[in-house]
Design a protein around this nucleic acid. Structure first.
Lengths: 215, 215, 215, 215
DNA sequence: GATGAATGAGCCTTCATTCAT
DNA sequence: CATGAATGAAGGCTCATTCAT
């Protein structure tokens, strides 16, 4: 009797609660390890009772995973947009770097958990979740690696392992994150991005005089 | 027949046990968060009983701290040696990069814990330990930042925040670590180092045509 | 139909649980040392789970302290009432003796713990708790000693150290407690009180022929 | 082949070690609860290794029990000597009081443990030990009670339950102990004994004018 | 015999999860 | 649906006891 197509009020509330809880968790994760954040705290920060969380999430594990997935999916979509947009590989890579930095700043809290879960190899974590994580990771790496490969093929980039370049790019982005934390927000990301891009483009661009100082 | 000067048998055993336990802890930390690794597990992995650990360490906190300090102190000493050696700033930085990569490969296990603990800001962790960590971190950053600053002052490097450059360098080194894990050891570090150094030196070196997009 | 003015149902439950747990602890303390009674046992005796205790008490220390304080405060108040009432010092002392005996019988469980904790001198016990205990002890001794001192000053009592007399009084009261336990409740306290009072008053009252061997 | 009658050197050493350990335990028990004193501490205080204690005692329980028994047996013997000596019941009781006070001062450490074990009713304690304790207790009470009974039968004492009087006597002796602890040794036992004896004898002696103030 | 390193049962406490209200 | 009191598994740590040296 109830038209299933248009979102019921119940669904709206559910959506809202879910968001609120995830937001609270994210806030707490910003400055603490996953294991030291308690459900009690998340509930309090979200303004709901402890038990309520369990109406929207299977458990703590599930909650954290949702958090990561949520952000990951969005980021992948954004990157895909860049990849399929127009521009040279270098330009696209610069856009990706900028995007990653944006996400890093916004979702700083999740990166440690993300990186760790990825490394854990499924130990102690739900297999499904880990597979999903792996898939997201692989999608990301594949897309960005494609960009580097394109540049290399086009003879614009130095002939390095494009996958390694992807990791280096991400490493630099994360470094900016740590730098921010270390510098106590005194430096805006905007100042860091150009430096990162310079290093990247200058280092990447094929140049006659690029003498590699073999350690 | 071989009587090495002094060490008592007891000291040898103590030394051995301490190593065993630290090694076990390191192994576990490789793929898990500090908080999720239990003393029971460490004991089991070290082949001793739970109580035995407490004969060699004050407690969990102490154990982890020892682990990180151990490696950190050595690395700082090595970096200092490079800094005070001879060569241009760029050469020194390349040496530091190489050294970091060596340590990363050897002590891969500790980096996640190290990075995370540093970010967590002492919340939930023993203050003394965190202070020590902070000190080591600061020493490292200071020393390497000095190198970048020297290069910038000498007009050899692009005029960027030298501290940021330090973080970027470390970020790239870590990236190689993740790359290795991701690639399943198929790629040796030796292949990654030249790429990293090229990015670094080409990006760093002041060049006429380097159009830095100054935000 | 019966709506008692204010107390929430929650408050009632809290009150009830708190009492239950304290009662259980008291029961166990009756025949065991504080240190040998476990939280698990207390929980079991109170009919709740181990964790539940921690919803009502900070921890074991806190629980024990509450137990002793609870009774102590009330007793101190009662004694103060006697002290500030009317009557000769001897009469007041007799009233105090009677009161102590009442408490002893009702709260028999706590006296061993109380006495022992007092003797242990804070070693191994939370400082705050021990200070509180010390304060109550000192208040008690001071008040009763004042009574004896009054009697001595008035020339009604033998010239002994009034503080010592306080301790002797309490010692006799406790003796009655042990006597009861030993006699297996066969003897009522009512039979013991007159004897105690006779010893006390006859021994205390200054008499011509009382040859006190003044050291 | 070895004459079993004369004590071997081994037996002498055993005797010595046993004493040393018991003495150390007693020293520690002076200011701490039985449960908070560790075997490690006792060993250290006795100047032997932890394992050595187990060559002379079955375990901690056994050690404590030996301690109590040792003193108890001696005290019982001393009391028996008084009982079977000559003098009026009152004189004997005064001697017993004096003796108890001596023991209390010397073996202060053991009384809490003694009293508790007695109350525990065998719960958690070796049955044999508890029976022994019970026997000692009963012997003590019986002997002293006999003295009071004699005095009462002789019409010299007030007609009270002689067993109760025994407990009161002991209670007062213990009170002196607490007084000493409380006064921080400032007062010698010698000053307390006369007061105790006065209370006892004056209160005990049948007197025409002894008006019992019924609460 | 003496030692003390090793053991592991057991303690206090925390916190993810459940469920009666 | 929402709540939060109750639960109990699990963790860090202590210490009585054992046993190889």
């Amino acid at each position: 009797m109830n038209s299933p197509s248009k979102p019921t009020k119940k669904e709206i509330v559910t959506e809202f609660r879910t968001r609120e809880i995830l937001a609270a968790a994210r806030r707490l994760l910003q400055s603490r390890g996953v294991e030291s954040v308690t459900m009690e705290e998340i509930a309090a920060a979200a303004g709901v009772a402890k038990g309520t969380i369990y109406l929207y999430f299977q458990g703590k594990e599930d909650l954290i995973q949702d958090l990561i997935t949520q952000v990951g999916e969005q980021m992948l979509a954004d990157i895909e947009a860049i990849v399929q947009g127009s521009g040279t590989p270098l330009e696209k890579i610069q856009q990706v770097a900028s995007l990653l930095l944006d996400y890093l700043m916004r979702e700083r809290a999740l990166f440690p958990a993300y990186a760790r879960d990825l490394l854990q190899g499924g130990r102690g974590t739900a297999t499904t979740y880990w597979q999903h994580l792996q898939e997201m990771e692989e999608k990301f790496v594949t897309m960005v690696t494609r960009l580097f490969a394109d540049g290399i093929e086009a003879g614009q980039f130095i002939p390095a392992d494009p996958r390694l370049l992807t990791f280096l790019l991400r490493g630099m982005v994360r470094a900016v994150g740590y730098f921010q934390v270390s510098a106590g927000q005194r430096k805006a990301v905007q100042e860091a991005l150009p430096v990162l891009l310079t290093l990247l483009s200058s280092g990447l661009t094929r140049q006659p005089q690029a003498e590699v100082a073999a350690g």
